[in-house]
């Protein structure tokens, strides 16, 4: 009985979507959603849950495939040459794409215009943290501390974070020594074990904020974090720089307007569904934020100039 009612609901929803909000377009076969990262990671989990919500809401068949490599570069390389019929979509994170576009744009087989941007799913909240007994509480204090004998060791796990600290160091004369790590878990370990003075963190630190083991020095985003509204951003603390990692979904350039409208509306609905909201809240400690097709395009174009600034170009 329950199955039947779900089926009927799904049918109704797809009718409503097909005839009302979504103009005429509907896929003529299954939609492939390519994930630019390995199975089991955050991007993969988000992508699969969005795909499932979209399937339930629209009745379309969506197949999720992992195409890891180069932080999404391998997947977007393939996506750029796929047929723009709305049945091949790709999901990635903006930062590695923007960094590679800025650093080696000429070598890449695609550029910003190779894609039609459909939606963002959420913005990761990136914080700078320190152990709670560290002798500083904000960026100014950290900079002061770094001017001591041994400098300040700062752990990071992605290029833009390193560049942000270099930017701050260049502007303030701080003596930051940047320690490359492979994951946020490793950074937390280094903080808790007292092996570094400060580090970046994208959510893994929140339980330690609650337990009082770590403190937050700044938000590295272009805005404060929902769970720590009293901690100012790096920008508010006097350095005109930020890192805004977004999870986004794109299609090969050249979608028809109908297709684009139908897909972005379906994505928007899926992203704001309860299941997706719960997974985003649980993994990223934030709300879903879909910027829509225009907003996502602006985010990517603006991102290139921001990342160029990080590189001092």
């Amino acid at each position: 009985m329950k199955k039947l009612s779900t089926f009927v609901t799904a049918l109704c929803v797809s009718f409503v979507l097909a005839f009302a909000a979504h103009a005429e377009w509907k896929p003529s076969g299954p939609i492939k959603l390519l994930i630019g990262f390995d199975a089991g990671g955050e991007t993969d989990t988000l992508g699969r849950v969005v795909a499932k919500a979209m399937e339930d809401q629209t009745g379309w068949k969506i197949i999720v495939e992992n195409k890891p490599g180069g932080g999404g570069i391998a997947m977007f390389t393939g996506l750029a040459v796929a047929k723009p019929d709305g049945q091949t979509l790709g999901m990635g994170v903006n930062m590695p794409i923007l960094v590679n576009l800025v650093l080696r744009g000429k070598d890449l087989p695609f550029d910003l215009d190779s894609f039609d941007y459909l939606a963002t799913i959420a913005r990761a909240q990136l914080a700078i943290i320190a152990k709670s007994d560290a002798p500083f509480d904000d960026m100014a204090g950290l900079i002061e501390y770094s001017k001591g004998d041994d400098g300040a060791l700062i752990a990071f796990d992605a290029k833009p974070q390193e560049l942000l600290m270099n930017f701050v160091g260049g502007a303030s004369g701080a003596n930051f020594k940047l320690v490359p790590t492979k994951s946020s878990a490793e950074m937390i370990q280094d903080i808790l074990g007292g092996h570094v003075a400060a580090s970046f963190a994208a959510g893994a630190h929140i339980p330690y904020l609650e337990s009082g083991d770590v403190k937050m020095i700044a938000s590295a985003n272009d805005g404060r974090h929902s769970y720590a509204p009293d901690t100012p951003t790096v920008k508010e603390q006097g350095f005109d720089i930020f890192v805004d990692p977004y999870f986004f979904i794109a299609a090969p350039a050249g979608l028809s307007d109908d297709t684009k409208a139908a897909l972005s509306a379906a994505l928007n609905e899926a992203i704001n569904s309860d299941e997706v909201k719960a997974v985003i809240m649980n993994t990223l400690k934030t709300e879903p934020s879909d910027l829509g097709p225009q907003g996502t395009t602006d985010m990517m174009t603006g991102g290139v100039s921001n990342v160029a600034k990080l590189f001092g170009k």
């Binding site: 089991g40 937390i188 893994a204 339980p207």
Partner: peptide
Amino acid sequence: IGIPGSIAAALLISAFKIHGIQPGP
């Protein structure tokens, strides 16, 4: 302490996380 020691352990953390459980102190 919420730190995975291997790929399998990292996968278990993601399973915990999607259920809203953050391994840690």
